[in-house]
Design a protein around this nucleic acid. Sequence first.
DNA 1: TCAAAAGTGTTGCCGATACACCCATGG
DNA 2: CCATGGGTGTATCGGCAACACTTTTGA
Lengths: 231, 231
Amino acid sequence: MAHGPERVALAVSTVIFALRPHPTTRRLALWIPLVRRIRAPHQGTWALPGGPLATDEGLAASAARNLRETTRLAPRYLEQLYAFGGLDRAPSAAERTVSVVYWALVRPEEADASVATVNVKWFVADEHPELAFDHALIVEYALWRLRNKVEYSRIAAAFLGETFTLAELRGVHEAVLQRTLDPANFRRQMESSGRLVATDEFRTGGRHRPARLYRHDESIHLADNGPLTGL
Amino acid sequence: MAHGPERVALAVSTVIFALRPHPTTRRLALWIPLVRRIRAPHQGTWALPGGPLATDEGLAASAARNLRETTRLAPRYLEQLYAFGGLDRAPSAAERTVSVVYWALVRPEEADASVATVNVKWFVADEHPELAFDHALIVEYALWRLRNKVEYSRIAAAFLGETFTLAELRGVHEAVLQRTLDPANFRRQMESSGRLVATDEFRTGGRHRPARLYRHDESIHLADNGPLTGL
DNA sequence: TCAAAAGTGTTGCCGATACACCCATGG
DNA sequence: CCATGGGTGTATCGGCAACACTTTTGA
């Protein structure tokens, strides 16, 4: 009779989200970078960036390092998604692996050199190719969490700069939620959330009234490290 | 210079909740079983039940097995809480451990033999003694999740039998949330949630009008195995 | 017939939505 | 002066909390 592997390997993977225009519709959409597997199993198919946990780094640090190595970007937001450890995650011949998966938000404007690496390619998040292992399920779950969380937290800020107009912030929400939002009601929602601080600067340039710039209340921490940071 | 351990150990622990009367107030309260550590580090202090992940079992299965071994009970509800993997979880001399923690709800009425084991003792959840490692933080986080989730899911059912009155169900909610709830509004909330099915039986015996018995809609699954079971 | 809990009705408040409407700017 | 988005006002709707009230039992 067959029996399991001798030890359980521990890996950390990350679902990395960025906002860029959709190639056909030109409207903002969520993108994720995938890595082409260079070894069996699933050699040649796309997979989430990730790797084994180093013995001298924490789980979140491992995710951040992997993110940096894959995209040359620093995460603007990083949160644990789930630990996947089913027995059916890989072909029976493969080593038994438990993956702690994180999801992250990045701002890709700065360094589009992120596309440089050959084996890394960005895809529109809900138009990705077939993925290795259970990674398609993981991406779907991460998308669900992101779309959920954008409605009651300030994570949308992670996609924007230091200051931004309400229209820009609304654009992020609309891209994530994939539906249009009423500008008037969105404004009131944000104003009453207590998370925004109005500056006395304005963004001019459009052929319309200049829009006031806002920043986020810095006394509220963005990162959600689960039970570790307050919550 | 010192360096980290050579490998990372993977353990699974579980925060197990049961409802029983508080020893002094006699009102329903949340209890958790703790295990006295029989070896260093933290020898002699109380800790969450748990142990290393077997190579031939999934994460949730490991939590369920551990729960059964600790309490002789089967979980009525089981959900992953978080994966803890910081570098500061244990004294530097100890082995580096990543713990995948689950939380569970059980119904202790059936087998109070659960208290039999010498090194296992039940405590009121928010009156527990000092705990080993970061387990106090974990218990707090699990309590937060439970109290959150009881408001929008049907997990309270896990503390009750097949059928129950609305007063019994309300009692569970009140014990978890630690506040009284308006019976009239609670009734309407439950009725409009679509999760309850009225039976044509009644609970008699009190010196008051008999209460209708309800059961939960079986077409809705109780377990939340995260992304695995369709959420 | 009375206490106590089951169950129903009613009201007022608050937040969210829909949408009409003014404001300020570039062209 | 007009098109465009910025920004404000307002009516409506629905859910929820508070609480008065009726019903039905055991003692």
